[in-house]
Amino acid sequence: MQALSSVERGYDLLAPKFDHTPFRTSESIVGATANALAGLGPFDRGLDVCCGTGAGMRVLSSLCQGRITGVDFSAGMLAQARSAYPDARWVRADARALPFTEDADLAVSFGAFGHFLPAERPALFEGIYRALRPGGLFTFAIAAPPPLTSVWHWATLGFDVVMRVRNAVWRPPFVMYYHTSPVPALCDELTAVGFTATTVDLTDLGRYRDGSPRYRLILARKPPTDPL
C-alpha cells in the first residue's frame, strides 16, 4: 500500500513501524555525524529538515543549546517524532517551501534527498539558506558511490529502474531514487544559492576496498554576512 501511494501518504502509512524498518537512518550514521560536528559549534537553535520520526534530533539535542525544531510534511511521521521528543518544536510543512527565516544556527537532514528530483533541490536549498542565521551551518551525510563491482551499486541501480517504471505507469508518483544525488552536483547547487560547501570523510563508517569512504559529510556554511 505504501509503494502505491504518494510519498506523503506512504509515509503516513509507514510511520508507526518506520523505526523498525531498514529505511530509518542508522544510529551509526547519526553518531558519526554528531562526532564530526562536535568541534564546529557552539550552536544555539537547531533544525531537522525532513525529520521523519526524529533521527536527527539526537544530533541537535547533543549539539544545540537552544530550541530544536523538526519539519516534515507527513503528519504520521511527525506524530511518532513528537512522542519521542515531546520538548522539541514540530512543524508540518513541505521542505520545498520552508516557513522559516533566520531561525536556526545548525540545520541537518538524514536520508531525504532521494525524495527530491534534481529540479526540486534549488528550492529546497534556498529555503534552508533562508532558515539559517548568518554564519549558520547546513550539513548532511551522504553515501559515496560504491564501486561498480559492489553488489550495493547494482542493487540500488535496480531499485531506481523499478521506481522509474512504477512512476511511469502509476499515479501518484512515489519519488525515491538512489542515483540522483551525486556529491559534486549537490555541492554546486549549494554554492549556487550562497553556501560555501565542503566535504569531510566520515571515516567512522569505514571505507571500500579501494580506500574510498563509504560516507561523506557535506558542510554548507552560510556567510557571516549575507552578500544579498
Rank of each mutant, 00 (worst) to 15 (best):
L217K: 04
M57Y: 14
I128C: 04
A119L: 15
P86R: 02
A15Q: 05
F140C: 00
L37N: 00
A220M: 06
L202G: 10
S150V: 12
L98G: 05
R166H: 13
F100W: 02
L217Q: 10
C50S: 13
V200S: 08
G70E: 08
I218L: 13
L202A: 14
A93E: 06
A95D: 13
G127C: 11
P134F: 14
P147F: 10
W170A: 13
T53Q: 06
D72T: 00
R58Y: 07
S150I: 08
T139P: 04
G70T: 13
R58W: 09
H153G: 06
R171S: 10
A112D: 00
R133I: 07
V193L: 05
D188P: 00
L219S: 03
T33L: 01
F159H: 10
F110L: 01
F18H: 07
T33Y: 01
L14G: 01
A107C: 15
R207Y: 07
F138P: 00
N167L: 11
P86S: 04
G10H: 00
N35M: 15
D12T: 06
L132N: 02
G31V: 03
S5N: 09
T196Q: 13
W170R: 14
R164E: 10
D87E: 12
S62C: 06
T199P: 03
W90G: 14
G66M: 02
L157P: 04
R24F: 05
P42C: 11
L202E: 08
R221F: 01
Y178P: 03
D201S: 10
P42K: 07
A32E: 04
P122V: 09
L98R: 03
I68A: 11
S212C: 08
R207C: 04
Y215A: 03
P42A: 06
S6P: 01
V162I: 13
L78N: 05
V59K: 02
F174D: 09
S109N: 12
Y177E: 07
S74M: 07
R45I: 00
S6Q: 04
P22K: 05
D19K: 06
P145N: 12
L106Q: 02
M77F: 05
A220I: 10
V49H: 03
L219I: 02
G211V: 07
V7H: 02
